[in-house]
Design a binder for these strands. Structure first.
Length: 114
DNA sequence: GGTTTGACCCTAA
DNA sequence: ATTAGGGCCAAAC
């Protein structure tokens, strides 16, 4: 378990129920402004090894983009989100701006306009 | 060690 | 709405 992995999990665990964040947002919060892909890579690598609300992380368009691994898939992510009261429109689309979790002042205005 | 791929993001057309 | 291209970084060949 690397430091970065721990920090990702740490932050993901602070996301309140019924809220979501984007991969890029996690990256910025962790201090790697252009490391969205890296975050995705790390989350994929965990594969449920550590318990954390991984389903509250989606892409910046509000879409579920995970391909799925042995433990979790897009269908499960969707049902988990719905179970928390988040509305999922169309197959896998979410009104992210409505549910986005915004921690104090850790987000770059460039990434999150308005 | 170069190339490809990916649970990403942005801009432009 | 869709496509194309660039940037990003780590893993896997």
């Amino acid at each position: 378990m690397t430091e970065l992995q721990k920090r990702v999990i740490d932050f993901v665990r602070t996301i309140p129920q019924g809220k979501v964040v984007s991969y890029g947002q996690v990256a910025v919060t962790l201090g790697i402004p252009r490391g969205a892909r890296q975050v995705g890579w790390i989350l994929r690598g965990l594969e449920g090894a550590v318990e954390h609300p991984w389903w509250r992380v989606i892409n910046n368009e509000g879409r579920i983009t995970i391909k799925g691994n042995k433990h979790h898939g897009p269908l499960e992510q969707r049902s988990r989100l719905v179970a928390e009261g988040i509305e999922v429109t169309d197959g896998f689309k979410i009104a992210i701006e409505k549910y986005r979790y915004r921690p104090k002042s850790s987000i770059s205005p460039q990434l999150l306009p308005m």
